[in-house]
Amino acid sequence: MIRLSNICKSFNDQVVLDQLNLTVEPEKITVIIGQSGCGKSVLLKHMIALIRPDSGQVIVDGEDITSLDEKGLNQTRKKFGMLFQDAALFDSMTVGDNVAFPLREHTRLSEKDIEEVVFEKLKLVGLTESFHKMPSELSGGMRKRVGLARAIALDPKIILFDEPTTGLDPIMKDAIDGLIMKTQELTQATCVVISHDIDSAFKIANKLAMLSDGRIVESGTPEEFQASKNPVVVNFIKGHAETNNQN
């Protein structure tokens, strides 16, 4: 589904990704873990070509998206839904308009049909009553849920989650984790989740991958991770209490 090979990326002489290789399996939840600031978000943004690599290939559905022009990229991006770290809702629009945004842009549905779909998606995340509210009136967790509703508005084949549980209280975290799994189950989409929260990672992941020093140091099922002897992985799993509060 998504394959990254030999990705290199550096910002102002600082190497962030170094000869990175990763394959994301279709119709599964892959969680990429790693310390804060190790380049997880950069890696995720490579998958949807928000950031272009200095070298290497990003292959989505057999197509190298690093060589695509704006027009081709727009076609590929329609396969994606993305939930940003702070949800990135448009402040100038109501919740309903935010979720309706991709529908208005990329379908020719009538307003009535769009409203129906938006209502459907909001129901899925349990926020139908916020339809007419502005994003500034919502709490962090609610914003993330709206962001999720917007990400899945076009029924994408691939959904990317950038730190979905960061900055949330434990109950909300649990709710979001549940939502990710429920969504995956319903849509059978390929999900990539970036997280430094080892608890949620183990809970939702079908596959795990560990990013450290610009490379994937370990990948496998949660069970394989539990049994891993790799010191970086072991430290991360054990030391989660310290790293958790750093973000």
Partner: peptide
């Protein structure tokens, strides 16, 4: 002529154009 249809399968809406 453009026709859009919506189908809802298991709570997931699919649009066809």
């Amino acid at each position: 002529t453009v026709t859009d249809t919506i189908r809802t399968v298991d709570g997931v809406t699919i649009t066809e154009k």
